[in-house]
Design a binder for these strands. Structure first.
Lengths: 228, 228
DNA sequence: TCATTAATACTCGACTTCGAGTAATTGAGG
DNA sequence: CCTCAATTACTCGAAGTCGAGTATTAATGA
């Protein structure tokens, strides 16, 4: 009954599935796959079984029965407890109502982009843009193949995904344009820095020249250890 | 030298920091914090030290020196190896060029939204919208406080973040509108389902009625176990 | 001057995540 | 009828993640 701090959304998916009817873990996995929830909820066997175990330990689900057919591995069928039912709706409500910061790889990469040179960065971003546009096309294809009358609410998560994809395409396109046109402040310094570095100029001289390049306030250039 | 498959972007951040100059782990953490990279790269001590250890084990970084000042814990200063230098640029390039699916909590929640009733869902989404708009305001405030001349490229990751935030606001606003106007196909069935359930109607009768409600093709309503 | 807070620099272990591996059963093709 | 692939159902251990805890020193202020 310990209040385990489950954070894996897969655990919520398990609760929601058991809200419908009792199931064994393998059936949960096939059901999630059949309903295309795998696109939105990361699913792998190891996690599924350990998540189920931890839900049981915290009293949110319980074993209903344990059936063996022939020589196959035993199937353990689980069902929701009253506590689990409460938890499922509370948890889902919270995920819907409360935005939490999600860390993406691309955001991390952007924040470190200065480590490669600008022309290289542009090239990589163009590759990304290409992939993203292919994804849009693929998605268009899927959408046009969905039978008329299919309830939108059943695939609302894919509309969200699409909204984010379109936003990213826009962002990357703009970024490439700004980088190419040197329209983005700081790119000149960035480029100069890589020129100096590849010419073997030592770090402190690079720092000095960059400081000189930048007109006006340069407080932001300072290092935490060197600031007065 | 083992090719460890590091996936934590924090490891890339470590490589990039050491590309600048040798550092000890604690200094990496303060530097990342000072440069606001914490907003984009999840940082906690446990992960940092274990990531550093695993980078060392795979030969991408190495100990430069180990200094002790007074009775303080020893500071272990690391530096990049040639392999680490190569890895840093290759890894960064890959993160920039290659989109990978990121699983967000909100997307997971949307995919399970059917488990709570529509009116409840609308309420939670309105709460979310409120928070998101507050975030936009806060971000506007920060942006207007940035000193003129501050190079945009140094905070490009926050522009990405903002683009995604704006897209989410749009999406949630539209979704709320569509739900309220019953404009979204499937909402009627969804609402009816929760009415029946809270009236204690058994699952199979609910299924029967929902099938009847939906004109035309209802293949998509079928269960994997019951399809012919 | 003495107490209290902040900063420094890391350690530890509980918990999660991952995905390859296992081992039986069913189905379809030749 | 036999073989080979797919499906069923789960196990296991290595690796990663997390954040509270520890122990010292520096700074602040009553």
């Amino acid at each position: 009954m310990a209040e385990a701090r489950l954070s894996n959304p897969l655990a919520l998916a398990v609760l929601v599935l058991l809200f419908e009817r009792p199931m064994h873990p393998y059936e949960m996995s096939t059901t999630l796959r059949y309903r295309r929830k795998e696109d939105s909820i990361k699913l792998n066997y190891g996690s599924l079984y350990s998540v189920v175990a931890s839900l049981e330990k915290s009293g949110l689900i319980e074993v209903k029965e344990s059936v063996r057919e022939g020589n196959r591995p035993e199937r353990t069928v689980y069902q929701l407890t009253p506590a689990g039912e409460t938890k499922a709706t509370a948890w889902l409500s919270e995920l819907l109502s409360t935005p939490v910061k999600e860390y993406t790889r691309f955001e991390a990469a952007l924040s470190l982009i200065g480590a490669i040179d600008p022309d290289d960065a542009i090239r990589q971003l163009e590759l990304r843009l290409g992939s993203l546009i292919l994804q849009q096309r693929a998605d268009d294809g899927i959408r046009s193949a969905v039978p008329a009358g299919f309830p939108r609410i059943f695939m609302i998560e894919s509309e969200y995904q699409r909204a984010l994809l379109d936003a990213e395409v826009q962002f990357v396109r703009n970024l490439i344009t700004d980088l190419k046109s040197e329209n983005l402040t700081g790119v000149k310094q960035w480029r100069r820095m890589h020129e100096l570095r590849s010419a073997g100029v030592p770090a402190d001289e690079i720092f000095a020249e960059l400081t000189a390049m930048t007109a006006g306030s340069t407080d932001w250039l300072e290092d935490p250890t060197t600031r007065s």
